[in-house]
């Protein structure tokens, strides 16, 4: 073994040490603890700023009153609070309109992809009309114009409005996903003798699912958030409830924070569930 010059040894070890220090810093920055610390620090700063702001306008915090609006403890056991009731309506509204949006969206996507000229023209016309209207205007149109004709209630009008508005976005997701399946799949399916509906049912749509799930989740979260707009026609969902409570109690800060947190929890649960679904579908492909 050749002998190493002493000075060289010293040089090597010092270089080793700096590389070591660099790695240690990087490890520390990458660590979970560090990211949690950073997160806490940033959140702390934001809250701190809000508190000082509230203090500056002389805000009177009354957090202790908020819990009653979620779950109220009375003599005959727990009583469901107004915010929780609002959440139930929001969930109901979201599920119904999302199911309807997916159904309408699928029909529009298939119309758009069909070789019938009239089919694709109707689909494109519908998409452009709905997509270029503000959600609020669409809601007014359905509630004040279409509503009286067909005798629609507030809730039905809201479901319809959200479903129509999101159906065109869902349709675009479906169309893109179906088109993402290679053309060869179509040809092979047709060469085997499958009819067009069978091609979609057994070959194209199952393969589109992995392209559909991520953007469709985004759309679901989007829908939950846009459901808040129906508070303008006084459907008793989460945002409306929040507004009513505030007009009674003037606790704007506490209630809006609570409402925001409830929306956040709801959408986060949904996202986690879909991540789980996506993993399941990944195995298949």
């Amino acid at each position: 073994m050749p002998k190493t010059h002493p000075s060289l040894i010293k040089f090597q070890s010092s270089q080793h040490r700096t590389a070591d220090a660099g790695r240690w810093v990087r490890l520390m920055l990458d660590s979970r603890l560090m990211s949690i610390l950073l997160y806490v620090l940033i959140m702390g700063l934001i809250i701190r700023v809000l508190m000082t702001g509230a203090q500056a306008i002389g805000y009177n915090w009354q957090w202790y009153r908020v819990s009653d609006y979620i779950l109220e403890m009375t003599d005959d056991g727990f009583q469901v609070g107004e915010l929780l009731l609002g959440l139930v309506t929001t969930i109901d509204l979201t599920f119904r309109s999302f199911a309807l949006a997916v159904a309408i969206g699928l029909v529009i996507a298939l119309l758009q992809l069909s070789s019938l000229m009239i089919g694709s023209r109707i689909a494109i016309g519908f998409i452009e009309f709905v997509r270029n209207l503000p959600l609020l205007v669409l809601l007014y149109l359905i509630y004040y114009v279409v509503g009286p004709i067909f005798d629609l209630g507030r809730f039905t009008a809201s479901v319809l409005c959200l479903a129509v508005y999101h159906s065109v976005l869902v349709a675009e997701i479906f169309r893109a996903a179906i088109q993402a399946v290679p053309l060869g799949q179509w040809e092979a399916a047709r060469a085997v003798g499958l009819s067009t509906p069978q091609c979609y049912r057994y070959i194209l749509i199952p393969q589109s699912v992995k392209f559909i799930l991520p953007p469709l989740t985004g759309e679901a979260v989007h829908l939950i958030k846009s459901s808040a707009i129906v508070s303008v026609i006084a459907v008793a969902e989460l945002t409306t409830m929040g507004r009513n409570i505030i007009s009674d109690t003037y606790m704007s800060f506490e209630i809006w924070f609570t409402v925001a947190a409830i929306y956040l929890i709801f959408t986060l649960i949904l996202s986690i569930f879909v991540t789980f679904l996506e993993k399941k579908f990944e195995v298949i492909n």
Binding site: P182, G184, Q185, E187, A188, A189, A191, V192, G193, L194, Q198, Y202, I203, P206, Q207, I284, N285
Partner: peptide, 26 residues
């Protein structure tokens, strides 16, 4: 019957299901 340059098997189905989808559905 048609055999393609790029095979065009159905990737989401097992080999057996690739073979049976035609006979069963058509």
């Amino acid at each position: 019957g048609m055999v393609f340059q790029q095979f065009n098997l159905f990737p989401h189905l097992t080999v057996l299901d690739n073979l049976t989808v035609g006979p069963v559905r058509v």
